[in-house]
Design a protein around this nucleic acid. Structure first.
Lengths: 256, 256
DNA sequence: CGATTTCTTGAATGTAATCAACACTGGTGG
DNA sequence: CCACCAGTGTTGATTACATTCAAGAAATCG
């Protein structure tokens, strides 16, 4: 283990804070990087991007230039079928990474669309790959992040393949709650940045079904709905909808 | 570009053949490796494993020791819900890799079960990660493989979220056909190693629905069914079920 | 060969989709 | 500031697709 002088510690603390602000803690914060590593990373992450609501970050078939980390706002990634059917593949909140699907073929396989005013960090992929070679911890972290994406999607497969409409929405809300908590936001107040249609396209339901479920949950005292503002008024009862399977369904087990 | 003497070429050819037999071409064949790299890889891949039908390769919660490449036979990976519901997350044929989900948390998140007599190569993960540091091409390939898994699961999300039962089975059969082709097996003859129940649990359907669809496809002249032996007698008509979306649905677009 | 598992087929049911009408929201310009 | 309008969300009625329940046939295994 290398000795750590005071200068290094300070610098490290500084850059970690920067990284936290930049919402990239997913990628680099957990690492034990030395100062020069940090510089390299920092150089890579200079570029910013801002999107307005409905702007595309990238489209299906675009060449992979970069991965993106959400700094503020939110996006959806959407898979399309030529006959117009769409599947929302993911929602991306601050601190989360987009674009991993493009690594295999050098093309993005989904459209990525901002759901609101959104800020991102651009991570040029070529540079990231090269840097990962030099910084073992970064390589490791990158692999972990990709693996986590796989696990997350496996949960979604289970949701789409085996769960009722009611369960799907309960999972969805609890999952959003959990992700907010990680950002040090209140767990029981959710401001949805996506439409009912988006939620439906994510959960494999019709938008009317989603709307009805919001109403039913409200009638049952689980939530309080005011447009896109949701209060989780009875988390316990909400979890009971999921029976004993919370851990799998909300992603608790594999989220960390 | 380094000069390549005769000795190196021969050795490289030899190991590539070994790798092909070992069904690991996914991982190392596309790389430009030099001789010492090859040795290192080869050392890593020494261990073999053989499973009988219904044997578990690993279970949910087991610690990640290794990734596995299927050499012969087939497996399913299964996600479980405590109340007994199951979702088959994937089927794994020769040349395909299992265990990527475990990298994020050091635990496998699915059960992996052999569907028949199955042979595998064990790839100790720790060693793989370290080797990937030293061989840039390997790191790159590993990232690509993981990205491809993500893309594949995204297709499955679309299938489960947006496709009819009929379309799901058509996609499934065409996908199997394509994977067989890649192994230099006939594209129009499929011997299913999985039960109707497994297929149903993969496609998010009831087993009766799957059974009925096989019958209907046969009545419509698309396939000829004899238990688990399927002949694709009219691929064209089968593709027409999918409308214009073949490329997405059969994985053609992103498989390579 | 018998016994168990797997598969097929039929009938009834149910969950969520679709179709349809209306209400609310939020942004824009008069 | 209000009215308007497009987009978004709610609710009801009907329909449809796939599930469930049930029974029997076929295949597989010991």
């Amino acid at each position: 283990m290398p000795a750590s002088g005071k200068a290094e510690t300070v610098s490290l603390a500084k850059i970690k804070i920067a990284c936290k602000q930049c919402a990239l803690r997913e990628l680099c914060l957990p690492l034990g990087l030395d100062e020069s590593d940090m510089k390299e990373l920092d150089n890579m992450l200079k570029r910013r991007r801002t999107l307005k609501k409905r702007d595309y970050l990238y489209r299906i078939g675009d060449s992979l230039h970069a991965l993106y980390a959400v700094k503020a706002g939110s996006l959806k990634t959407v898979g399309l079928m030529e006959d117009g059917r769409v599947q929302v593949v993911g929602f991306h909140l601050p601190s989360e990474l987009l674009g991993l699907d493009a690594i295999s073929s050098d093309k993005y396989t989904c459209d990525a669309v901002a759901l609101e005013e959104t800020e991102l960090c651009e991570i040029p992929y070529q540079a990231l790959e090269e840097t990962a070679r030099e910084i073992p911890g970064l390589q490791r972290q990158l692999l972990r992040i990709m693996s986590r994406a796989i696990v997350q999607e496996e949960h979604q497969l289970m949701l789409l393949g085996k769960m009722t409409a009611e369960e799907r929405l309960a999972v969805y809300l609890l999952n959003l709650s959990k992700r907010q908590e990680r950002l040090d936001l209140p767990a029981d107040t959710i401001r949805l940045s996506m439409s009912r249609q988006d939620i439906a396209d994510y959960l494999g339901l019709a938008l009317e079904t989603v709307s009805r479920l919001f109403s039913r949950f409200q009638d049952d005292g689980l939530i309080s709905v005011s447009g896109r503002q949701i209060e989780l008024t009875d988390m316990l009862k909400m979890r009971q909808i999921l029976g004993q399977c919370e851990s799998i369904k909300t992603g608790k087990k594999c989220a960390e």
